[in-house]
Amino acid sequence: MANSNLTRREILEAAAASGGALVGGQLMPGTTSPAAAQGAAGIPSPLEVVLRVNGAEHRMTLDPRTTLLDALREHLHLTGSKKGCGLGQCGACTVLMDGKRVKSCLSLAALVDGREITTIEGLAQGEQLHPLQAAFIERDAFQCGYCTSGQIMAGVACIAEGHAGSAQEIRDWMSGNLCRCGAYDHIVGAIQDAAAATGSVRRG
């Protein structure tokens, strides 16, 4: 990591300690608990983080508790990745990290320093949509659209991983991405179309 000599454990301990201090202060207003006193004096110092997002390198100074999702949305203004549950259960925040899908709400930005991150904003090549983006439009695979960016990013990974051989396989491997509008049949169809268009699988 280019930012400091802090280890993963030290970053997590700093985040946990300061978070606990804030909670302690809120639970006991008007008092100064040992945890609150420690938090006032021991809030973790900002870290220099290098994020590679959609092919561009960004040098940022972040609180070590900053999630990748917040770094993308609040600092880089890439708002395509959505905040949903904040627990890694809905998939609205899915991005690709070194080509693998991850829930960005569960990843600390400081721990992905230097990794290659791709968001929904980085899929299209100029005016040319990614095949899965085009398939989502053709199939009407979204309604409210809130989950769409996460569905597309997970779908891109699903195809790349070779898990788009059948509708059931797609459903199994896309189960971590929820659609409250219930557009699952259209999403599966779009992934099948994109897989066929890219030559990843044969349509039966």
Score class of each variant (00 low, 15 high):
T31P: 05
T31R: 14
T31L: 14
P34G: 12
A35M: 13
A36R: 15
A40I: 14
A41Q: 15
A41E: 15
G42K: 14
S45G: 11
S45C: 01
P46R: 07
L47W: 01
L47A: 09
V49F: 10
L51S: 04
L51N: 01
V53R: 00
V53Q: 02
N54E: 08
A56M: 11
A56G: 03
A56N: 10
E57T: 15
H58G: 09
H58D: 10
H58I: 01
H58M: 02
R59K: 15
R59V: 12
M60H: 01
M60W: 00
T61Q: 15
T61P: 00
L62Q: 08
L62A: 09
D63M: 04
D63I: 06
P64F: 00
P64D: 00
T67H: 05
T67R: 05
L68C: 02
L68Q: 02
L68Y: 08
D70A: 14
D70M: 13
D70Y: 12
A71K: 05
A71M: 06
L72M: 10
L72W: 08
L72F: 09
R73K: 04
R73D: 05
R73T: 04
H75I: 08
L76I: 07
H77N: 07
H77W: 03
L78Y: 04
T79K: 07
S81Q: 09
K82Q: 12
K82F: 01
K83I: 04
G84F: 02
C85I: 11
G88I: 07
C90K: 11
C90R: 10
G91W: 01
A92M: 13
C93G: 05
C93Q: 09
C93D: 14
L96Q: 09
M97G: 06
D98H: 05
D98F: 01
G99Q: 11
K100G: 11
S104T: 07
L106W: 02
S107M: 15
S107H: 03
L108I: 13
L108V: 11
L108S: 10
A109E: 09
A110Q: 06
L111C: 02
V112S: 08
G114L: 12
R115K: 14
R115M: 14
T118V: 14
T118Q: 14
T119L: 09
T119K: 08
I120F: 11
G122E: 13
G126L: 04
Q128G: 00
L129F: 11
L129E: 06
H130G: 01
L132H: 10
L132N: 12
F136W: 10
F136E: 06
I137W: 04
E138D: 14
D140P: 04
A141H: 01
F142T: 07
F142P: 01
Q143N: 10
G145C: 03
G145P: 04
Y146D: 11
T148I: 07
S149C: 12
G150P: 11
G150A: 09
Q151Y: 09
Q151L: 14
I152W: 06
A154P: 03
V156K: 05
A157Q: 07
A157W: 11
A157E: 15
A157K: 00
C158T: 15
C158Q: 05
C158K: 08
C158H: 10
I159E: 08
I159H: 06
I159N: 09
E161R: 01
E161V: 00
G162H: 08
A164G: 07
A164I: 07
A164M: 09
G165Y: 01
S166G: 05
S166L: 08
S166Y: 04
E169V: 05
E169F: 06
I170T: 00
D172S: 04
W173Y: 15
W173I: 03
